[in-house]
Design a protein around this nucleic acid. Structure first.
Lengths: 163, 163
DNA sequence: GGAGTGATACTCGGATATCTGGTGTCCGAGTTTTCGCGG
DNA sequence: CCGCGAAAACTCGGACACCAGATATCCGAGTATCACTCC
């Protein structure tokens, strides 16, 4: 089990946009350059975020992507579910209903215990991710990370940020 | 992101073995028949459980697989980590160190905040699965499931269980 | 000088190849059983 | 009747094809911009 690499890219893009003034827009090419990743492939994931209502896309020259909501209202879980498959990682194929111990289907009204256990763990995972917003991460980065990073990025941002 | 189907098979096999008297052995073919899955592929996963010290394999005729420890001492997480990749689902590629804002590597002593967030969620997931043992699940099944299931499986078990 | 207008250039968006990892299967090595034989 | 031994059959174990989803890329549709022209 492994998460798509696009998740990492999407979250980092969200965090970067969250650190900028509200309404700031960056083109897909700029976002790709800032993170050092493939532009075409990154845009594919950003489109998924637009479909999910997390980002807004602005067409035409001076266009790009920006947050559709204040970063305090965007959870990390939303970003992940927009890029990855939103359904639980564990898929119960109801193997308990097969084999020599099988009964009629109506005997399996109660959920599979194994399934329920996996679902509980999945819920805990999602709860932890729902508790963190893009604003939280941006604030922590601003607090803990080396301030020279953003300082060094300043001229590049002034060249690329649009609003 | 999706879990391997072998996880479901492995956990169900562990639970079935946990419901039997201690030391009971079932052949790979029997376990496959009971759950209605491919024998060859199931055995592949059972071998991983043997390598992890969860199951013991007995060679030769009258051989098979049995639990290597009391089911109270086998957590669901162990079974999953034996079959799936035991490392966290999220892989941080340190994209924060790339692009125009990049500093020298020594500036990134503190962990990536996005990475830390994902790791916390992963830890919550694992904690939930570590809290459940095969004995817990077996007990819940015995308590909640339709008793006719095991009743109907009884003759088949007597034909296939070895010790 | 200002407004309108058309061409333009840049953007997003989805349809299209490639590749790694999960899925499924097969045959070989090893061991216990079991049947036959001898004592 | 009992012990021994060799063949056999059944088991696990790892090596070999196949397929789906993620990865990576390209070209086309759409729009705000900008320059030019006309009033």
């Amino acid at each position: 089990m492994k998460l798509s690499e696009g998740v990492e890219w999407g979250v980092h893009c969200g965090v970067l946009l969250a650190t900028l003034p509200a309404g700031s827009t960056l083109s897909g090419a700029a976002l790709a350059e800032f993170h050092g990743v493939s532009e075409s492939y990154l845009v594919k994931h950003l489109q998924a975020l637009v479909r999910a209502g997390i980002l807004e896309s602005v067409p035409g020259p001076k266009g790009g992507f920006r947050l559709a909501r204040p970063p305090e209202q965007v959870t990390v879980l939303e970003v992940i579910e927009a890029i990855e498959d939103p359904e639980p990682a564990f898929r119960c194929t109801e193997i308990r209903q097969r084999g020599p111990a099988a009964l009629e289907p109506s005997a399996y009204r109660l959920p599979c215990v194994v399934h329920a256990t996996m679902l509980r763990a999945d819920a805990a995972w999602r709860a932890a991710l729902r508790a963190q917003t893009l604003a939280d991460i941006a604030a922590t980065v601003a607090d803990r990370a080396d301030p020279r990073g953003m300082q060094q990025a300043q001229p590049w941002l002034e060249d690329n940020v649009r609003r």
